[in-house]
Amino acid sequence: MSAKKVRPRLSKGILEMKFMQRTKAKVDKEIEEAEGREMYSQEITQKMLNSNSNYIMEPSFVHCENLIEGRLSFRGMNPEIERLLELEQADKLANTRHEQPTEVSDKDMASFYNAQQVTMQKKFQTKAQFKAKRNNVEKTKWQNKKARFHKPQEDDV
């Protein structure tokens, strides 16, 4: 009693039919793969199959020693090459220069965006919320002052 369910094989006659062409290609591929596995099963050891080695082979010195490109021109001998070199240099600089000097410090920016958030929140609050908040918040100095009529001084007039 096998746990695996053996898939029924389609007969050759059906596979030859026109509407079965895609299935036929799939079946053919499966058969081919199975044959391939069988053919190389002697040569592929278990170690090759499930070895995850920590070694990477690098046949070139270029990457080991960080060699530069070997085509160079100096002092206007070959303007075409020198232009390419300049472009490369510019690219390299652009890639290495990550940190740009900032005009606004991180702290300033954070406080600015905090303030912005409060402003936006105010726009979306209901009237009730607005009033509740107004009563809760301690009033600043000028809000505490009771509005009163000030008699204008004589020389103001």
């Binding site: 060699l67 070997g70 160079l72 100096f74 002092r75 001998m77 070959n78």
Partner: peptide
Amino acid sequence: RLILRENCPLLRELTKEMPFEIAVGL
């Protein structure tokens, strides 16, 4: 390979003497 190392001063020094063009095959 020596010529093409990043820190090799050879080409830089030669540039001071004369203009030239070079291709180094590995």
